[in-house]
Amino acid sequence: MTEYKLVVVGAGGVGKSALTIQLIQNHFVDEYDPTIEDSYRKQVVIDGETCLLDILDTAGQEEYSAMRDQYMRTGEGFLCVFAINNTKSFEDIHHYREQIKRVKDSEDVPMVLVGNKCDLPSRTVDTKQAQDLARSYGIPFIETSAKTRQGVDDAFYTLVREIRKHKEKMSKDGKKKKKKSKTKCVIM
């Protein structure tokens, strides 16, 4: 069974824990209790493949930012979460993405942009803004509501699919490099 290491990042209060708990335990946590770091595991079937999701729910508070490099190193894919009623959390996505790329030393890291709290009427981040940002990053965008469960499975499952595509691409690139290195030079 394939294991996928997913990391949920975003500013404090955007609903990272609520999304994760909704996926794992099928219930909505409405009281806000700032996370330092929590880890969850769940076995699911995605596109006919049974897999184990190892999900790291991270601290959004700035005082825990020193811990970010460590979990970013171990993560295979990242859910970059903002709240649709919090423009600052949307603007912060850029910083999370840049930090992930720096730590992973790669421009090509599996990510999904997630606009959470889409059940709320007080939207300050337009869907088109988020779609445009995701398009500019070359990553999928999904709106979710941890409260109603809308888009929750889709967000995590899409990230797994992005990781699969990335692994497939990397193995193809690896095979191309191996083929090239088999060419021999004969000096007579």
Rank of each mutant, 00 (worst) to 15 (best):
V103G: 04
L53H: 02
K88R: 13
I84L: 13
K182C: 03
P110R: 02
S65P: 10
Y71H: 15
T20S: 09
S145E: 15
A18S: 07
E31F: 03
A11H: 08
G151L: 10
Q131W: 06
E168Q: 03
Y96F: 13
T35N: 00
E76D: 15
L120E: 09
C185L: 02
T158C: 10
V103M: 14
T183Y: 12
R135S: 09
T158V: 09
I84S: 14
F28M: 04
D47K: 14
R102G: 05
G13P: 12
V7E: 02
V81R: 00
R73N: 14
T124F: 06
R41I: 04
G174C: 09
L159Q: 12
Q150C: 09
E62S: 07
D47C: 07
K176P: 14
Q150K: 07
L133D: 07
L53S: 08
E3I: 03
F78D: 00
A11T: 13
K180A: 09
D154S: 06
Q70H: 12
V7D: 08
V109N: 06
T35L: 00
C118A: 12
L113A: 11
I21F: 03
Q99A: 14
E168G: 10
C80Q: 05
S122C: 07
K172H: 08
A11S: 09
V45N: 14
T50D: 09
L120Y: 15
T74M: 12
V152E: 13
Q129D: 15
L6P: 02
M67P: 10
R97I: 15
E31S: 03
S171I: 02
L19E: 14
G77C: 09
I93H: 01
T58D: 01
S122A: 08
R135Y: 14
K104R: 11
V103Y: 08
D54K: 01
E49L: 03
M111N: 01
I84W: 12
E63G: 10
Q129N: 06
E62A: 05
R97A: 10
V109S: 06
K88Y: 01
E3A: 04
P121T: 09
S39D: 02
C118T: 13
D69R: 04
L133T: 08
V103T: 15
D173I: 07
E62L: 09
K175V: 05
E91L: 13
